[in-house]
Design a protein around this nucleic acid. Sequence first.
DNA 1: CACCATGTTGCACATTTTGGCAACATTGCA
DNA 2: TGCAATGTTGCCAAAATGTGCAACATGGTG
Lengths: 110, 110
Amino acid sequence: MDQRTLRRCEFRAGIFKALAHPMRVLMLETLKEKPWCVCELAGALGLEKSVASKHLAQLKAAGLVDTEKRGTLVEYRLVAPCVLDVAACAEGTILANRRRKLDIALPSRS
Amino acid sequence: MDQRTLRRCEFRAGIFKALAHPMRVLMLETLKEKPWCVCELAGALGLEKSVASKHLAQLKAAGLVDTEKRGTLVEYRLVAPCVLDVAACAEGTILANRRRKLDIALPSRS
DNA sequence: CACCATGTTGCACATTTTGGCAACATTGCA
DNA sequence: TGCAATGTTGCCAAAATGTGCAACATGGTG
């Protein structure tokens, strides 16, 4: 409960908050392949450009993506690919545990 | 942009949303050592018991923790420890990248 | 049974987040 | 210079979230 622990939890919660939206997860997965500019992402995902820009700004504030200006457009690229691996790990663990509980609840299916 | 991809992103965003609060992150880190009941956690973290219960309910709905009734109290235990490793990985990557950018911006410090 | 400890739920209120629209800034080009 | 393309920001309304308090449910004990 010391201040240092609280700071760490706030920082990590901030990272997770940036990931806590389906469209932002989808954006990161899209950026995994190659950098995209805002209008490309907005078009591919069916978003208003302002909405896409705001989502990307949140990801950037969390340090998950970075930008590079190229003339009149802004390229976003993924910084921390490990968060996507983590998402896959968590999803796998949670689904496996959910299945395990169902097997216990319904043993007749064995 | 197919439905299957969208479902996956929604599921993962749901996991991250459950993690997107400092107190819930702290709860998971606390549960890493051993199972705790609600009143113990509430007391240790300085929370109303109702608040602690609601946070834990969110973690349980996301599949990150599980419960076991022991008489009049309810024990919560961690299901997916990998999310804590993910948090550490992401934090490390982000902080390293942040430092790298500062070094580029301020090369005189080398 | 009454009583207490533990958890959960309902409600009200404040805060935060989200999406859409318009306005503005910046860059490239004719 | 004017104009078009790209991004960002400001504002607002709707939706979601967080917190505290009270009420309720459940299980153990005298």
